[in-house]
Design a binder for these strands. Structure first.
Lengths: 253, 253
DNA sequence: AAGAACCGTATTGTATGCGATTATTGAAGA
DNA sequence: TCTTCAATAATCGCATACAATACGGTTCTT
């Protein structure tokens, strides 16, 4: 069912011939990349889902060329799996990969904490406080809002280091964590304990690098145990059926 | 001057019609990606160099499409800079970016050290020892061999963690370090002190995670001070002229 | 002669098309 | 009824073609 396929938000007609102030003609390839990235992170595209080039291109109003380019980049970031001659899927990390991601993330964010300890400007400090207050508010009605906010807290911290590479890696790891929690996480345990965020800010402001690092480490560790313990949606049918077989005295080959 | 343009190692004509056993038809896009990546790391393509799509495609025997795809991925990894409508260049990291990369790398490799401490199998241990011996031998004649080997030592360590993401990040950081040292590094100070590698192995084998992490940290720190201190080729004319201005009592705006 | 506007060329951005590979369906055989 | 196999449909891999943009040199203006 080929729907109208509106040509993506990008590059509006622009009434006057002049460039409208700071209007860099951003390549649409990047727009496609961002769109897919968001769709995956927000789980509009679910883990493991097939990603056919032309239907996606149709939906976004671009040709397969651009979609392919986006796939390539997303594959580097581990958000899509690219199988030769068999197309692309939203990545479906194994439990092992999940552990790897969390381990690396812990290392990275520990670095963030160490970097930031004793270097927060009053403005940054205030921004973090405000953010935590938002988290608390959202935590009460426990919507998806809560999840998004706790994620953003960590991104904000990474931004404040001023280290672009560190930010990129933290973002990447975070994205993959979203995927992972979508697969293996409990329904909606809002992943981060707000109180732990508070303590962390405290340590950062006090300039206690070691304590900040330890808090961060522990914080992320507990995210794993809190949210990641129960593998729900199995990837392989065999995993789903195994317990049934056992209870019936059958032995899977 | 359009030379013959031999079609890349990929997909040889294959005399018999049959697929030769385990012959996965690797996508040529990936071959292009790898080729460019290596060329950049080995500095056949120098930092800042222009990368025109069609001449590169011609040389590799592929169309611009594949070259562009490769550029996209390399850009994600920070090895090329992609400017809209103005093409691609080999990345030319600023000193600030350089520091960022080294900081992240330190964090990552510290993680490697912690992960590996007390977990080295005898085989791995032996492999590392052998590698260090190679380094020592190469160190005497101080060729480019020496540099390559010290880099590989770190990659080997990352591999041994079994953490794919960690390996990827360490590799990425290493690649960018190559670029950085090509710009800001001393001519051929073989970057790593072999003795430090030895000590590290020692600590890993002893299972002393804290000491291993500290050694790694210190080791990478000293790479920076050893090799990175003297900014040679400046990117910006202003940097070059500033000292002259000062010595003449002029004040740059 | 210095600067601005113009135009041809080179290069990039994107769509489309064709051959190749894989998935699917349905029929014949066991 | 369950396989095996073949024909067809769907999808991918890649090259090519066309449109849009930026660069360099030239000419025109002041």
């Amino acid at each position: 069912m080929p729907r109208p396929a509106r040509p993506l938000a990008a590059n509006k007609p622009r009434p006057n011939g002049k460039t409208a102030a700071t209007d860099a003609p951003v390549p649409r390839a990047q727009a496609v990349y961002k769109a897919l990235r968001r769709a995956i992170i927000e789980q509009a595209l679910k883990p493991g889902m097939k990603l056919p080039e032309d239907s996606i291109g149709e939906q976004l109003g671009v040709s397969r060329t651009l979609v392919r380019e986006a796939f390539g980049r997303l594959a580097v970031e581990g958000l899509v799996e690219l199988k030769p001659n068999r197309g692309a899927n939203v990545a479906y990390p194994t439990l092992e990969e999940a552990r790897d991601v969390f381990e690396v993330r812990r290392g990275l964010e520990r670095l963030v904490a160490e970097n930031l300890a004793g270097r927060l400007t009053p403005a940054q400090s205030a921004e973090l406080e405000a953010h935590v207050r938002l988290e608390e508010k959202a935590h009460e009605q426990d919507g998806p809002e809560s999840i998004r906010l706790s994620g953003e807290f960590h991104i904000k911290l990474a931004e404040m280091t001023g280290n672009a590479l560190l930010l990129r890696y933290v973002q990447e790891a975070s994205s993959r964590c979203s995927l992972i929690l979508a697969i293996y996480g409990r329904p909606h345990s809002s992943e981060c304990a707000v109180s732990e965020h508070r303590q962390l800010i405290e340590a950062l402001r006090a300039g206690d690098a070691a304590r900040a690092a330890a808090l961060m480490d522990h914080h992320l560790q507990s995210v794993v145990t809190r949210a990641l313990l129960a593998p729900r949606g199995e990837r392989d049918i065999r995993d789903v059926l195994a317990p049934y077989a056992l209870s019936e005295g059958l032995t899977p080959s």
